[in-house]
């Protein structure tokens, strides 16, 4: 297994976990009525974090795709 490419590194998934913990609106008070750009604030935060997740995912695909290897004799 390569160490500088591929998706086995636990740090990749730790970052994902942190991002999803922010993106899922579990921590907002039930009556949160703050508005930002015309949308409920929790919606803006959720969507903005989703965008960050998308960027992170795209970056991972483009930079960490494992090179074709002959590691297995299959």
């Amino acid at each position: 297994m390569q160490s500088t490419s591929g998706y086995h590194s636990r740090w990749i998934w730790v970052v994902y976990l942190c991002l999803f913990v922010i993106a899922v609106p579990w921590y907002w008070p039930a009556d949160s009525r703050q508005i930002l750009f015309g949308f409920p604030l929790w919606v803006v935060v959720s969507i903005a974090t989703s965008f960050v997740i998308s960027c992170y995912t795209a970056w991972l695909f483009l930079t960490r795709w494992p090179e074709d290897s002959e590691e297995e004799g299959e």
């Binding site: 999803f20 993106a23 969507i47 998308s54 995912t57």
Partner: peptide, 15 residues
């Protein structure tokens, strides 16, 4: 909005 996130999650699964 969960739908936006699970559609992204599908793409993440491909990794």
């Amino acid at each position: 909005i969960t739908a936006v996130q699970f559609m992204i999650a599908i793409v993440i699964s491909y990794q």
